[in-house]
Structure formats: structure tokens, C-alpha cells
Design a protein around this nucleic acid. Structure first.
Lengths: 112, 112
DNA sequence: TATTTATGAAACCTTTGGGTTTCATTATAT
DNA sequence: ATATAATGAAACCCAAAGGTTTCATAAATA
């Protein structure tokens, strides 16, 4: 199964879980209590988060505390940041691109 | 259907498409040519990207050019950035948290 | 010791996601 | 006028995602 950070944060429930434990670990039940869905469903989300390294679970007695390890989020930030110039400058607009010499080979069709 | 930016960038093919058109628009076929899967499959990815505002399509003659409009990626960056302190400082470790006054200690689980 | 609590795993179900093939439509090229 | 190119939509398919219920087990408690 694909288990990358991008997919992990795609689900809103998982983003909420991350938010919930970002500043203080919570045990599985405590996390689950904040949602409508079953504990088991939440557990599966948590498990997924551990599988991609965003959460670490530590057992204390019969409880397992979920702790956020968010450094992997840099992957996401780095990916998105590389395009910042694109949306701030948009130096290469559609018009520009269509007129550029290295553009698609066809003769620029007339706009409709 | 859920159609948010987080979900849009979750798929590696869509991230590739974004990368491909980030600096210069391409028509649908040109994008599809770069992948193994069918044009129709790629088209659906592109459509999805337009639905969440990351891509705009403009028709020229019989071609439709896909242009990246990536400003929405700030949503993702902003979401992730809010946690940067968490992973750089990690001021509230598991131990800290477990010892904190407002947290359940070994004594815990008075729940319900 | 018996009971309750916290949790993980298994089996199962339904929807969604990503893919395919086929067909229709519109613009360009012959 | 006809053929071809570029594309969108429809009808399917199958695996993955997200959820549920049920059962098992270890730890904490009465």
C-alpha cells in the first residue's frame, strides 16, 4: 500500500487527529472520543499515520499514547514551495507560453 | 464529492501533471503523452485539478490548454507551517506531557 | 480472583478512486 | 464535403479507502 505523507494528510479526519495531538500526546481512546466514528475507525487512521512516520505510539501500562512527529511535513512544504514563484510571478502566462519559441510546435491557432 | 487541494495533491500522477504544466501550459493530449495510462485517465485527473482550482483550461481551436494556477497550494503550506514549531522545538514531549499537571498521569483513565 | 478498561486484529460492507473502452462532438485539414 | 484530430462523457471494472461489528488479550482495579 502507498503510505506517503501526501496521502496521509489528504483525509480531513487524519488532519484533525494531527491537530489534536500536535502539542500533547493523547491515548487512542482520548483521540477517538473527539469523533463521531468508531474507535476502531480512528485507530486505523492513527495506524496509518504511524506507518508514514507522522505519529509515534508509546505504551504506558494499558494505554498507548499517540505523539505527533511532524518533521515529515517538510516534504509537503518543500514540494509546494518550489512552485511559489509560479503563482507569485506567473512569468510564463498562457499567452506568453503560446507565443514563446519553445512552445508546442503547432502554429498558434486563433483564439476563439 | 470531496474536492479539496489536499486530496488533489495526494495522487502522485496529479503531482506530476502539476509539475509538467507549472511553467508552461500544455494541451490535454500533450500532458497525457507523458504517461503510460490512457488519455481519458489523465483527463480525469486534470478535470479533478480544475475542480479544486489548481488548473485552468482554456480552449484554442480544438485544443484545450491546461494552465497551472497554484496559489491554492498556500492552503497546504499554511496548514503544514503552523506545526513547524512542533517539530523544531518539540517543547512538549511525551514525557513532558505525561508529567504535566493537566495531563493524565500514571494514575489516569478516570474517563467517561 | 473476577471484572473492567484500553486496545489491536479480523471479517465484512459500501463508496470512492483510478483505470479502460467506446462513442459523440467540434475544429482543422484534405 | 469528408476525413482526421482533440477532447469530453458514459458505462463499466476492480482495488483501495473508510467504516462497522465482533472477538481476543493484556493491564489495572474492585
Amino acid at each position: 500500500m502507498r503510505r506517503d505523507v501526501f496521502q496521509a494528510i489528504a483525509d480531513p479526519t487524519r488532519r484533525e487527529i494531527i491537530n489534536m495531538i500536535a502539542h500533547h500526546p493523547l491515548n487512542v481512546n482520548a483521540v477517538a472520543e473527539n469523533f463521531e466514528v468508531s474507535r476502531t475507525a480512528i485507530y486505523k487512521h492513527i495506524k496509518m499515520l504511524t506507518e508514514c512516520g507522522l505519529v509515534v505510539i508509546t505504551q504506558f501500562g494499558r494505554e498507548r499514547f499517540c505523539e505527533a512527529r511532524l518533521e515529515r511535513l517538510t516534504e509537503v512544504i518543500d514540494w509546494a514551495e518550489q512552485y511559489r514563484k509560479v503563482w507569485t510571478e506567473r512569468f510564463d502566462s498562457l499567452e506568453n507560453s503560446l507565443d514563446a519559441t519553445d512552445s508546442p510546435k503547432r502554429k498558434p491557432a486563433r483564439k476563439k
